[in-house]
Design a protein around this nucleic acid. Structure first.
Lengths: 151, 151
DNA sequence: TAAATGTCTATATTTTTTATCGTGTATAAA
DNA sequence: TTTATACACGATAAAAAATATAGACATTTA
């Protein structure tokens, strides 16, 4: 299960992407994003900061300041967002490349049967989720799209 | 990431499956399973109880009592074990069939863009993980297998 | 009946998740 | 240059989940 925090992050990104798609996009305040995404403002603040540090969004201070999307939606990888907000996505730490951690009790990774079976699942899973971006979320956006999609 | 509890459960199942594959299989005490799987005995106790309630393993009390595998390894679904031990495997509660829960703030599931994108990932993921069983873990068991598998 | 073993409930500890608060800093307009 | 507005950052806290541990009890069989 993805965390509530991740849901807020995705909602915020959707709000920012929607704004960026407007004719005259403006920076949105945390408050505005919180309202539109129905997220707790003070919590969202930290999430946006993480997104900013990852250079997914950008912010300006002072009057008329706020946040806006920095990367193109097609370049915002869902799996990267998951890693950023929720941490490693591998089912086992010993299968994560970026957050690799050996199991305490592991005598031999090469012969670990748990590792082996989850490795198979994980590679297939990665193949799918690594291909998804914020743009994919936007595409399935409107009700009209939904109806067309079902036809 | 799967929990430590799930790791213990899988290790215990492997121990029991290995025992079941012996010429003269015997019931194994919690202590024996704990030792062989390097799991905390008192914690393992609860795990085995859950597996027993799910009729994956069986137990006998008293002298010479202990646990043994009840289901055939090929019938022990890894995804079912995940559901049993770690809870729902869906990325969102609103995508889980057995543990379905509507999101508090959700106005319309049919048009939720987060739900839609994770639904796609999830169905593909399910396809993979639902096909895996304890038997698959056993197959990739020995070092010899590993070497052959690589060839 | 005694020893071995599983059963069950309660409790405890640690970590993670989900926030909230206070204060500081930057910016732009008045 | 003051002031209003907004983000930045660190501290703290409550709630939930994960990871156990303990004690009393029930069952079996030698």
């Amino acid at each position: 299960m993805i965390t509530q925090k991740m849901k807020y992050a995705l909602k915020a990104l959707l709000v920012l992407a929607d704004e960026a798609a407007q004719p005259a996009p403006e920076a949105l305040t945390i408050e505005a994003i919180a309202k539109r995404s129905d997220s707790p403002k003070r919590f969202l603040e930290h999430i946006l900061l993480e997104l900013r540090n990852a250079q997914v969004v950008t912010s300006t201070r002072g009057r008329a300041g706020g946040y806006s999307l920095l990367m193109a939606p097609a370049d915002v990888s869902i799996s990267e967002m998951l890693r950023l907000i929720d941490g490693p996505i591998a089912p086992l730490a010993c299968l994560s490349r970026r957050a690799y951690q050996r199991c305490d009790d592991c005598t031999d990774e090469a012969t670990c049967r748990i590792r082996k079976v989850f490795a198979e699942v994980f590679w297939s899973y990665l193949l799918i989720i690594d291909s998804l971006t914020l743009a994919d979320m936007l595409r399935s956006g409107t009700v009209a799209d939904q109806v067309i999609g079902k036809a």
